[in-house]
Amino acid sequence: MKVDLGDLNAFVVVARARSFREGARLSGSSASSLSDAVRRLEERLGVRLLNRTTRSVVPTEAGEGLLERLAPVLTEMEAALDVVNGFRSRPAGVLRLNVPISASRLVLPRIVPPFLAAYPDIHLEVITEDSFVDVIAAGCDAGIRYDERLEQDMIAVPIGPRVQRHATAASPAYLERHGRPEHPRDLLRHACLRGRFASGAMTLWEFERDGEVVTVEPTGPLIVRAGGGTDLAVDAAIAGTGIVHLFEDWLRPHLDSGVLVPVLEPWWQPFPGPFLYYPGRRFVPAPLRAFIDFIKAPETAP
Rank of each mutant, 00 (worst) to 15 (best):
V3I: 11
V3E: 01
G6H: 03
D7W: 00
L8I: 00
F11E: 01
V14K: 00
A15V: 00
R16E: 04
L34C: 03
V38L: 01
V38S: 01
R39F: 02
R39G: 07
R39M: 09
R40N: 00
R40Q: 00
R44Y: 09
L50M: 04
R52L: 14
R55L: 12
P59K: 06
L67G: 03
E68S: 13
R69I: 05
A71S: 12
L74S: 07
T75M: 15
T75G: 15
E78D: 15
D82N: 02
N85Q: 10
G86W: 07
S89Y: 03
S89L: 05
R90T: 14
A92I: 07
S102Q: 14
S104K: 15
S104W: 13
L106T: 15
L108I: 09
R110W: 13
A118Y: 06
P120I: 01
E129T: 07
D130E: 10
F132G: 14
V135T: 13
C140A: 15
C140G: 11
A142W: 13
G143D: 10
D147W: 15
D153R: 07
M154W: 11
I155M: 14
T168Q: 04
A169R: 10
A173M: 06
E176H: 05
E176P: 08
H178W: 09
G179V: 00
P181G: 02
E182V: 10
P184V: 00
R185S: 08
L187V: 04
H190S: 12
A191I: 07
G195T: 02
A201Y: 13
L204C: 05
L204V: 11
W205A: 05
E208M: 07
R209M: 04
E212I: 09
E212C: 02
T215P: 01
T219G: 13
V224L: 04
A226W: 08
G227E: 03
G228E: 13
G229H: 03
A236S: 15
L246G: 14
D249C: 08
W250C: 06
L255K: 10
D256R: 13
D256N: 10
V259D: 12
E265P: 02
P266S: 02
W267Q: 03
P270T: 09
L276A: 02
R282Q: 12
P285C: 03
A286V: 14
A286E: 12
P287R: 02
A290I: 06
I295V: 14
K296I: 05
A297H: 09
P298Y: 05
A301P: 08
